[in-house]
Design a protein around this nucleic acid. Structure first.
Lengths: 216, 216
DNA sequence: CTGTACCCTGTCCGAATGGACAGGCGCCCA
DNA sequence: TGGGCGCCTGTCCATTCGGACAGGGTACAG
């Protein structure tokens, strides 16, 4: 049994964790060594347990799964990681891959494919579905960091975006952030340009679709 | 063993189904008699298997879990139903309760509470978390159907809302729907009024938050 | 020190937005 | 045969939005 793959399951839904544990337990070469329901727990348990593979949900209650992954990388912890998410449109998948995830799985994936994915990643391989793979390829082909699909918003732009989503108008946003209305328009214009949106409404929906913004 | 509660699990994520089956199987008085991954399957299997309790996800790949429930009610099938969803802000929860669901559970619910909920509902009780319960109470206290929280959009308004979310402006929406720009403004105004939004951007985010619109 | 990125501010202007009037047509139900 | 509702259309107007000019300040890396 020394060949078993030691797995840590990180997801904020008990059901999903139980589901993963249940189906992973049917495989003789898998053993789930721990669970985590928050980003902080994920870092802590990974450091403590040193699993072979980390199954990580992007939507953790205390912030982002990507943050947890970046936190681990900063601590030089190179656990092989599979992102486990409900949507393949989530921009954060790309962020996660950049942060060192070896692959990702949709929650709709058949269980056999999940087993195979874990074994592949554990064996040193990586695993991406066509959608993500093609987006990454566009990165490589262009050989550039300036990918219109992968915009990096500045902190201030995120502030404006958040208020934009709440339906505030420029003047109100200016009041909230203690800046002039003109400056708000400056940041809004930057958002439209970076997101490729034609107006503030489209900017908000596109940001949501890319996982840059969550409507709480 | 004739006292076992026969359960049908409907969710479009295999993992969630497996998770439910796994934890439900630990209870001697539960038996999962079937699974469904789409709304159509849910109706079909419920009619075929007549489970005691239906665990139903709101987000089914082929449309709405609520639709499946309404379809069952139209066929006079009164299976006791628990909605199983990730968000408690979803307007569809209220729709589901109106369609005859006895309760709902968040996917973040601890497994013991899930067991208890199933037994409660099977025993003829109902089960609502404080958030949903209070919203329903507001319905009853007001004794009215005109609940500002539960707006009913007309088909045309939904058309406009969908295009609004894509960032189209009035003139473009008019072209898409083959109506005048003025009429678009009429429907937009109706949306703002019904949703209580101050502008189109807020209307879109509020609609998404209430489950009236999904950003595909 | 020079470049670069981020943040902030201004004026001017055409276009889009949303509200306040007002009205017509078809359908269904009491 | 009303009345209600959904859907459609119009004009007028104040406000908002977004772009096209401009520019200045700070912080940090090479």
């Amino acid at each position: 049994m020394s060949e078993q793959i030691r797995i840590l399951v990180a997801d904020d839904h008990p059901i999903v964790r139980d589901g993963l544990i249940a189906i992973l337990s049917t495989q003789a070469d898998f053993v789930v060594v721990g669970e985590a329901s928050t980003g902080a727990e994920t870092i802590e348990r990974t450091l403590a347990l040193s699993p072979d593979v980390l199954l990580l949900d992007l939507a953790m209650s205390d912030g982002d799964g990507v943050e947890a992954l970046i936190g681990l990388r900063e601590r030089q912890h190179m656990v092989r990681t599979i992102i486990f998410t409900a949507y393949d449109t989530d921009e954060r998948i790309l962020s996660a891959v950049r942060a060192g995830a070896q692959g990702y799985l949709l929650k709709g994936t058949p269980r056999e494919d999940i087993f195979q994915a874990i074994r592949t990643v554990h064996a040193g391989g990586s695993l991406l579905t066509p959608v993500v793979a093609s987006r990454l390829l566009r990165h490589i082909e262009r050989g550039t960091e300036t990918d219109p699909e992968a915009v990096a918003l500045t902190p201030r732009e995120e502030d404006v975006l958040r208020l934009l989503a709440r339906g505030l108008q420029n003047k109100e946003i200016a009041g909230q952030l203690h800046i002039s209305e003109r400056t708000v328009k400056f940041h809004v214009a930057a958002l439209l340009r970076k997101l490729g949106a034609g107006n503030r409404t489209e900017a908000v929906t596109m940001a949501v679709q890319r996982g840059l913004l969550s409507l709480s």
